[in-house]
C-alpha cells in the first residue's frame, strides 16, 4: 500500500513519515502530495498568530479541546524558529498542549522554520494539505511568534486568528500595517491581566477605523468589485486560554467565519489563491533550479568575486548571467 493510501486510511505513522519527507524536500514528497490532492479540500484551515508569549500554544491547546468536544478531529502544526547560527531548533509548543495527549482524533506536529521568514516554514502549506487529506476536520496552524510583519499565514489558511495580550502597545501600534490587517478574528488573550480592557479599547477603535476604510475601498479579498459582499465584521474576543475562558465563544466565531466564507463565495476565492500560491512557488523553485544548473559554479564565484572587488556590480552581473541562460 502506498504511503498516501496509508495516510488516507488513518495510519499516523505513515502521516508522520510523509511530513518528514515534505520537510526534508525528499523526492518522494511530490508523489505523495500529488496522490493526496484529490482527497483534500474538506478541512477548515485555521491560523493562530501573534507576538511571542501572547499564548498561542495555550490557546491552540484549549481551542483543539473545544473542537474535539463538537466531535471534529484536529490536526495541529506548530511552528517554532530555527537558529540562524546552528540551524538547529528547540520545538517547545507541545509543552502547552499536554491536554491533547492520548486522543487519537488529534495529531500534533512541531515544525522548525528552517530559514523561512514569514512565520511559517516552506513546508507548512503542504503539511496542512496532508492533514486535510488525512481527514482531519480542522487544521490549526500556529505560527512562530511574529511582530509587525509575518503575515504569510493569512495566505495559507481560511481563517486567521490574531492573538494579542494586554500591554501590546497603544493605538498607533495598532494602526500600523501588518498583522492586525490579516485578522479574521481578533483575540485579547490573558484577559485576566490588568490593562486587558485598555488593549481591547485600542483594538476596538482600530477595527472601526478599518471598517470605515474598507467600506470606502471595497472589500480587500473580493476580486469582483461589482459583486456585493456581505462583508465580515472582525469579532474582538477576550480569552483566558490557560483556563479555557472565552474559548467556546472563539469556536463559535470560527464556525461563523467558515459559514460566512462558504456562503459568500469567499471560501472558493481563498482556496484558489492558496492553490495559486502553491503552484507559483513550485514553478518558481523549479525554474530557478533548472536555470541555475546552466551556470557553472566557477562562473558564479568569479562574478561574485568581481562584485566584492567592485570591478562589476550585482545588477550587471545578473544581466550577464541571464545572457548565459538565454
Amino acid at each position: 500500500m502506498s504511503l498516501a493510501k496509508k495516510i488516507i486510511s488513518g495510519d499516523q505513522r505513515a502521516l508522520a513519515r510523509a511530513l518528514t519527507f515534505i520537510e526534508d524536500g525528499d523526492a518522494a514528497s511530490e508523489r505523495i502530495l500529488a496522490e493526496l490532492h484529490a482527497h483534500g479540500g474538506k478541512a477548515h484551515l485555521v491560523g493562530v498568530t501573534g507576538a511571542p508569549g501572547v499564548g498561542k500554544s495555550t490557546l491552540v491547546n484549549a481551542l483543539a479541546q473545544s473542537v474535539r468536544a463538537r466531535g471534529d478531529t484536529v490536526g495541529v502544526l506548530a511552528v517554532d524558529p530555527t537558529s540562524p547560527f546552528s540551524s538547529g531548533a528547540v520545538l517547545g509548543d507541545r509543552i502547552r498542549m499536554r491536554d491533547l495527549a492520548g486522543d487519537k482524533g488529534i495529531y500534533i506536529r512541531s515544525m522548525a522554520t528552517r530559514g523561512a521568514l514569514g512565520g511559517l516554514s516552506h513546508a507548512t502549506a503542504a503539511a496542512a494539505d496532508v492533514l486535510d487529506a488525512a481527514g482531519f476536520d480542522c487544521v490549526l496552524i500556529e505560527t512562530v511568534g511574529v511582530g509587525q510583519a509575518g503575515v504569510e499565514i493569512a495566505a495559507n489558511v481560511h481563517t486567521t486568528i490574531v492573538l494579542m495580550a494586554p500591554g501590546s502597545g497603544d493605538d498607533v501600534q495598532a494602526i500600523k500595517a501588518g498583522i492586525l490587517e490579516i485578522a479574521d478574528i481578533l483575540v485579547v488573550n490573558k484577559a485576566d491581566l490588568s490593562g486587558a480592557e485598555q488593549t481591547r479599547a485600542y483594538l476596538r477603535s482600530t477595527l472601526t477605523m478599518g471598517q470605515t476604510a474598507r467600506a470606502v475601498a471595497g472589500h480587500p479579498h473580493s476580486e469582483q468589485a461589482d459583486t456585493p459582499s456581505p462583508g465580515w465584521e472582525v469579532p474582538l474576543l477576550m480569552t483566558v486560554a490557560s483556563v479555557g475562558e472565552g474559548v467556546d465563544e472563539l469556536l463559535q466565531s470560527l464556525v461563523a467565519h467558515h459559514d460566512y466564507l462558504a456562503s459568500s463565495g469567499e471560501l472558493d476565492n481563498r482556496q484558489r489563491e492558496r492553490m495559486r500560491a502553491i503552484v507559483e512557488l513550485r514553478l518558481r523553485n523549479r525554474l530557478y533550479t533548472r536555470l541555475v544548473q546552466q551556470v557553472s559554479q566557477q562562473r558564479f564565484d568569479a562574478l561574485l568575486q568581481a562584485i566584492v572587488a567592485r570591478e562589476t556590480d550585482p545588477y550587471s552581473a545578473v544581466a550577464s548571467l541571464m545572457e548565459d541562460i538565454d
Partner: peptide, 24 residues
C-alpha cells in the same frame, strides 16, 4: 544543528511514545 522537540515535565510513557510517533 538538530531539531529538538521538548515536551515538558511529567510525561507518561504513553505521551512520550505518542509524541515520538507524531513527530517522527
Amino acid at each position: 544543528g538538530m531539531e529538538v522537540v521538548y515536551t515538558g515535565l511529567r510525561q507518561t510513557p504513553e505521551m512520550i511514545a505518542e509524541a515520538a510517533l507524531h513527530e517522527d
